[in-house]
């Protein structure tokens, strides 16, 4: 059973629906018992970084995620779910408190530079920097759907498995042992996105 982690932010349902469409056994849950026995964890999400991080802590989900990741459970972060893996975000840059993520990956989440249309909305290319089972069967240069104002800048470039060009070349997918995460929305990326979710199911089985 896959578990889509319900941490009370936007856009959880469409990821859940996409896995269900693929015929994968999946639940949308914040129940610790279910998360403890899931064969794979998915952290989707659209919304503010600080709120997402706070929700993970308030709902007691951060410790479960850490524990399961240490044990090697496959994990897929999507959009905000990728950003939350990093240490800090510029998203709440006006406020006096730095937004702190899970810190499972070293690096910061940054805003796109001035002069670009922000958010980036639409289909852009994935340029694979090294092979990843998440992208099995797909060609470098394939298009996926993006919708975001911030991007992750990993301190260790070995994490990066795909980059995308939006005025700057930025990291659009990472892989670190059992942790996979993408900045785009596979659940809104048509056949290519479904192939990526199917690949994640294969990784979990």
């Amino acid at each position: 059973m896959l578990a889509v982690i319900d941490y009370e932010v936007g856009n959880l349902g469409s990821v859940y629906k996409a896995f269900r469409y693929l015929g994968a056994p999946v639940s949308l849950t914040k129940d610790p018992a279910e998360l403890q026995k899931a064969s794979g964890l998915i952290l989707p999400g659209v919304g503010a970084f600080a709120e997402g991080a706070a929700n993970l802590r308030r709902l007691g989900l951060e410790s479960i995620i850490r524990e399961r990741l240490q044990k090697g459970t496959p994990f897929l972060g999507i959009c905000l779910g990728l950003q939350l893996l990093f240490e800090t975000s510029e998203e709440n840059a006006g406020s006096d408190r730095l937004a702190i993520g899970l810190g499972l990956c070293r690096g910061a989440v940054r805003r796109f530079p001035a002069g670009l249309k922000v958010p980036q909305i639409g289909w852009n290319e994935l340029k694979f920097t090294r092979p990843s089972p998440l992208f099995a069967g797909l060609q470098s240069g394939c298009h996926v759907y993006f919708l975001h104002s911030y991007y992750a800048a990993p301190a260790d470039c070995r994490l990066v498995v795909a980059t995308t060009d939006y005025g700057i070349d930025y990291c659009s997918a990472i892989e670190l042992d059992n942790i996979y995460a993408v900045q785009f929305h596979p659940e809104k990326s048509g056949e290519v996105g479904l192939a990526i979710l199917r690949n994640f199911c294969a990784i979990c089985s």
Binding site: W123, G137, L138, Q139, G141, C142, H143, G190, E191, V192, A195
Partner: peptide, 10 residues
Amino acid sequence: VRLDIYGHTK
């Protein structure tokens, strides 16, 4: 434009 609907070819 996005021509590669299936992501198999460029």
